[in-house]
Design a protein around this nucleic acid. Sequence first.
DNA 1: TAAATAAGCGAACAGATGTTCGAAACAGAT
DNA 2: ATCTGTTTCGAACATCTGTTCGCTTATTTA
Lengths: 216, 216
Amino acid sequence: MDESQLSDRQRQVLEAIRRLKQENDMPPTLREIAEAVGLKSVASAKYQIDQLKNMGWLDQIDNVSRGISFSDQGSRHQQEQEAAAESNVHIGKFVRVPLVGRIAAGGPILAEQNIDEWMTLPESLVGKGDIFLLKVKGDSMIDAAICEDDMVAVRIQKTAENGDIVAALLDDSATVKTFKQRDGHTWLLPRNSNYEPILGDEAQIMGKVVAVLRSL
Amino acid sequence: MDESQLSDRQRQVLEAIRRLKQENDMPPTLREIAEAVGLKSVASAKYQIDQLKNMGWLDQIDNVSRGISFSDQGSRHQQEQEAAAESNVHIGKFVRVPLVGRIAAGGPILAEQNIDEWMTLPESLVGKGDIFLLKVKGDSMIDAAICEDDMVAVRIQKTAENGDIVAALLDDSATVKTFKQRDGHTWLLPRNSNYEPILGDEAQIMGKVVAVLRSL
DNA sequence: TAAATAAGCGAACAGATGTTCGAAACAGAT
DNA sequence: ATCTGTTTCGAACATCTGTTCGCTTATTTA
């Protein structure tokens, strides 16, 4: 899904849709699009729309007037463009981060088959760096106010400092714990009195937890 | 331009237009409005629209599908009534939400002078609706895994159900508590054994907490 | 060069949408 | 009860809108 795959005409159509939608506060009709980009036939406009639909840039509700909308991928592009263009209001940058599902030991943390979905988050929330999202299993960090099913944003780094909350790979599964080094050993401390500290010498540190997200 | 001039049906129509427009990202058709408010004839819907048009609440482009929009006056009223409902700019699958700082009792919850900054969040995180962000003060909700300085996303609504975590206006300051109605009284329950339940009969419910964000 | 593909055009069609009209139901005032 | 204004309904109509089809033109490929 690269913008370079778009022809001039297709770029023109996308930009026209964005502009007309903003001007009129509703998506344009095929004929409005045709006129905006200089096409003399409605069918030509529909042809372009169908192309962009197949490429995943647009969604359209069939047989519904003005039923054109940007798809997830398309709107993300639009969003980033608008955010960059709208300089009078401070919006900041965005980071597109993968939500990692299955964890495979040994292999690279991030692999395409492990990624469930993508989410775009403001950089003010997760900071800079290589970030991925992990869904929390269990309640071992409840005293650190991290619950089951929370999503944690993890900045990839191989080590950590005492007290950092980290995501670590242990026995083929990812876990979130407090990092502590003492007496030459690495400990992964749960924050729940029902659990015992784990000796983490063999654990692989995936990164540091930099944000917590919870949907209720 | 007083709301008291509006009949129940007219209020119903305005609310339906606002809701449908937000849900579908485009203004509704007359038939969609008719169905939404329980009118069985398109002509009835048009009759109501014409009334509201003559009263200055709505604008409409003739013979254009989905050509209904709020007039300046209508939008302004909408803003006052819904506590800046129109302030949230929906861009694709993202929602631009204001971070509310100071809270003034009595006045509208959201006012420009109260907004510190804006943040754009994915709709998958906060859901649909009119959302604002609030920074949590104190540790009274620590057992609900909500810490001091966390940001909570609040969906504006005037009431709540038992067990919901809500943001409420109490004594000129905003507070986050668990909502509970019992014996004809409204209680705002902290989730920290060091605090006592608060009788919330006089409190104004700002909305329901739908997400928690924490930067570490 | 010839075939294949992409892009555009015009026309016709079906469905969606806004508009208009007359009649009926309803509530309040006389 | 009668009148009057408001609101709703159903139907018909005109326009707008999306869809489909055949055809042409330009570009690319064999």
